[in-house]
Design a protein around this nucleic acid. Sequence first.
DNA 1: ATTACTATATACCGAGTAA
DNA 2: TTTACTCGGTATATAGTAA
Lengths: 219, 219
Amino acid sequence: MNEKFIIALRRIALMGGMHDYIAISSRELGDRLDMSQQSASKRILELLEADLIQRDLGARRQRIRLTEEGISLLRQEYLEYQKIFELKGHVVVHGLITRGMGEGQYYVHQPIYKEQFSDKLEFMPYEGTLNVQIDAADVDKLEILRNSDGIIIDGFERNGRTFGDVKAFSAKIHNIHCAVVMPARSHYSDVIEILCQYHLRRTLGIGDGDRVEVIIDVD
Amino acid sequence: MNEKFIIALRRIALMGGMHDYIAISSRELGDRLDMSQQSASKRILELLEADLIQRDLGARRQRIRLTEEGISLLRQEYLEYQKIFELKGHVVVHGLITRGMGEGQYYVHQPIYKEQFSDKLEFMPYEGTLNVQIDAADVDKLEILRNSDGIIIDGFERNGRTFGDVKAFSAKIHNIHCAVVMPARSHYSDVIEILCQYHLRRTLGIGDGDRVEVIIDVD
DNA sequence: ATTACTATATACCGAGTAA
DNA sequence: TTTACTCGGTATATAGTAA
């Protein structure tokens, strides 16, 4: 079911439909997809119905572009292939040190989390996380982390507040062993939080705006 | 036809079938592909028939791995997605074919330019440029080109006359590979000049006043 | 438990054609 | 020219089984 959609979306994306409306007739799309004009027309209607594309149906020629959902569906596909061909045990991302903001800070102070970090990551984390804003070129790689299990740190409840599961990935930052932590059911983010047994800013002599490389283990 | 194959191959690859035989029953594969055991069994036979996988049919459990052809088929797919996502910037503009006027015509005939076009654009340009008058709605997008480096074609001097640097952008016009060329230090213009290895008016069956769409790479 | 055959149900495609 | 309907033929999937 989905596959027919993806093939068509991919074709449209290759013609530039991710960035802008492109003019394409149902016959032209059909030719490129090796199908009839009728089937291509039907496919377009199905994609519209599924909110994967949007259309500007002009008098002479329709113009089509992918919706956000369409793009994200394609990106998911791309990620499957990245997993196959690029995942050789680790993901390398680059980014800039940014100031706080993350929730990681707060987590680390919770004794129940802290104990698990120490058990499962095999180091006692320094009280605080280092936040790294990942380069646009590398954000897709974070999707691999969201799709991987990682090391699960169990959530808990305290004082009526729920602390959800957290997952951690063993990692290295400039050759120092550390861990990337994120909510187990994470929403999209281009910032990662790093736990380490040392005070990374001091140990590495780095600060806000400095560029770092993080090598994250995934299996 | 091919798509069913690719989905199944990808699934097997994700389970490690690219590097080694993996033990997987037809039921298990069916579950992962959201299909019945029977269909998965059939799919495996089809993949074998097409030489995309090889199988070691043991007494209790079959073991499967991808063949070289299977891997290369998957790699081709991966490449499609790389084309889509790694190529960040396109500019899509629309306009009308107009008659000559541009300087491009003259440039192409200069051997020193011509040689560079052939080297750097990776096609031998047809002797002449196609001029496109860009719609008022799209002229602003041309500013992006003026602010991008593009592919620099070095200028030269000849007979006391100076030929300045020219910059080129790889582009597509109605899905034919071409290049947009302009002076490296360009003044404002709402006309772009297109170089192609084919005679575009003839190849596309277009002429003065016809509307075209040009997709320009700006990475 | 397997794999895989046959027979039936379903989904899909495209020819013909309207608007 | 377009887009997109209906309808019938074919391809594909699965249920029921056999080995």
